[in-house]
Design a protein around this nucleic acid. Structure first.
Lengths: 197, 197
DNA sequence: CGCGTGATTGAAACCCTTCAAGTTTAGTGG
DNA sequence: CCACTAAACTTGAAGGGTTTCAATCACGCG
């Protein structure tokens, strides 16, 4: 339930010890309480966030004030509005903390600097991007091809931990259905003897 | 209506002349006729394809044999199943030619080799990935928040050229609606005096 | 010309939403 | 620790957007 950025560099990205220290010099960290915000629509996203502990959520409001969840980010995940970050535009998204959360802040020049320090970091960073694309494509496939129930079942299988940590109405907004819709989907599944987790 | 990989390297990626020549040595090209296939589900995606001329389409079949279009790739676009390509797994996708198409083939080690040859290429390649993520996120936002009509209007605005080059049923499968559904959306828009293009 | 594919249209069915109410849960202050 | 309140979840009924099924029309191509 906790995964430090240092661990990430060592274990996942395979950065050697000296370089880990060097890269750690580039970053800062921040704590946010549950319900607090790391990014608000209209502002520029100055950082990509790495979640060491806690849970974040990227979402937007439509013109009617309805929220749509684009991404959840539990421990060891990156989150941020790349659109705003990369092009210095004001963001259309919000990032909120669903739990008390500790994040590492990665500024604009971080990826380049860290990539120069460690080739392994560079490779792993690119791998993460590739992986992100995979995940987004899969989600699109589901959204254009699967029913609400199928999408929920996939969510349960893919993110079983989030099921317990995120309120149901947020999960509904991630799946592209209403909270009532999700409630009904769950009732139907319960009838069919489906047990989550 | 044509954009060579060489132009891409020179004009977009800003690779200097000598290095362009070096990078061009790494690639091969292929022609596919309309209706022919560059990737079939079950096989491994050995290349990322750059479209010099023509139009490709990445799609999959569900268990009922219905097609779902994940991506179109006209001139100067990259297309491929990164999932299969990167992890050497058999692909769930197909890639077909909607028009007679000439593509550049980029093999597994291409990105690394080209990145070593040219730092500008490396940067631009990463930029493309970032951009791809942006585009996918926007599509997800639309799929979970917008009606069929809104999604179609966005498609018209974003890809006006594809409207004329891809058959309507493919566009429908990209938007996550049925061909009949799209036909009705267009009729309603026509009533409201909407003119595409 | 005739065949096949794509586009359109109508009617019925269905999935999911919306609106409105009720129930449960979680958080807060006394 | 209980009482109170707000938020989250559930449920029912009605409605809307889209699909499904089936038939028809339009068109390009052998």
């Amino acid at each position: 339930m906790e995964y430090t950025f240092r661990q990430f560099l060592e274990e996942k990205a395979n950065v050697v010890s000296d370089q880990v220290a060097e890269i750690m010099e580039l970053v800062s960290f921040q704590e946010v309480k549950k319900g607090e915000s790391l990014l608000e629509a209209g502002k520029v996203c100055d950082y990509i966030f790495f979640v060491e502990k806690g849970l974040l959520r990227l979402f937007l409001f439509n013109e009617d004030g309805v929220e749509y969840t684009i991404q959840f980010a539990p421990e060891s995940w990156f989150i941020g509005d790349r659109d705003s970050f990369y092009f210095n535009q004001s963001s259309i998204y919000n990032i909120d903390a669903i739990e008390d959360t500790r994040v590492i802040l990665l500024a604009k020049d971080f990826a380049n600097k860290a990539s120069e320090i460690s080739a392994n970091f560079r490779n792993y960073n690119e791998f993460i991007l590739q992986n992100h694309v995979r995940q987004l494509q899969k989600r699109i496939s589901l959204l254009i091809s699967a029913s609400a129930e199928e999408r929920y079942l996939d969510f349960v299988k893919t993110y079983p931990d989030l099921l317990l940590r995120a309120p149901q109405w947020m999960i509904a907004s991630y799946l592209g259905i209403t909270p009532q819709g999700l409630s009904r989907v769950r009732r139907e599944l319960a009838k069919k003897n489906f047990k989550p987790g």
